[in-house]
């Protein structure tokens, strides 16, 4: 398959840049696959897994939160608040973190602390759900 240019950028750094054959994006209104010469579009993304096929055999998977995809004639750019390779996630540790976060929510003294803790727990749960895919 012909390749096109793809970039995954998080606020802290450029996570991935290179030529790829296909990218599966989980858009807010449904999943879509971007191939070369996709018509230009912009879409917000829901938290989930991004699948990148550099070649038919070489694949990379990232967990992305707060993403935004920009398909331009020059290629695909994904801006994400948070992006991490799936391999770096550890199921057991994640489960422990979720438990910790739940305890934090229960222990929170003020509303503000509770809201923050709940947010953290939800984000961890998202990660956990993504892993089960």
């Amino acid at each position: 398959m012909p390749a096109f240019h793809f970039e995954l950028v998080s606020p802290e750094r450029l996570v991935f840049a290179g030529e790829v054959e296909a990218v599966v994006v989980s858009g807010t209104e449904g999943e879509f696959t971007v191939l070369k010469d996709h018509s230009p579009m912009m879409s917000t993304m829901k938290p989930g897994v991004l699948e990148i096929a550099e070649t038919a055999s070489k694949k990379a998977r990232f967990f992305v939160r707060g993403g935004f995809a920009d398909v331009a004639p020059s290629g695909l750019t994904i801006l994400a608040e948070f992006a991490i390779p799936i391999e770096e996630l550890d199921g057991a540790k994640l489960a422990a973190d979720v438990k910790d976060a739940e305890e934090d929510v229960a222990d929170a003294a003020t509303d503000e602390a509770r809201r923050l803790a709940a947010e953290k727990r939800d984000q961890l749960l998202e990660l956990k759900n993504a892993l089960k895919l």
């Binding site: 606020p11 018509s39 230009p40 579009m41 912009m42 879409s43 917000t44 707060g66 935004f68 004639p73």
Partner: peptide, 26 residues
């Protein structure tokens, strides 16, 4: 280029603008 928007422009802007402020602060 004629862009397709998913969801529409207003909604995308509404999510992107607050994020842009955080980015500028960062």
């Amino acid at each position: 280029a004629v862009y397709d928007y998913e969801p529409d422009e207003e909604q995308i802007l509404a999510t992107l603008l607050p994020r842009n402020i955080s980015i500028q602060v960062l």
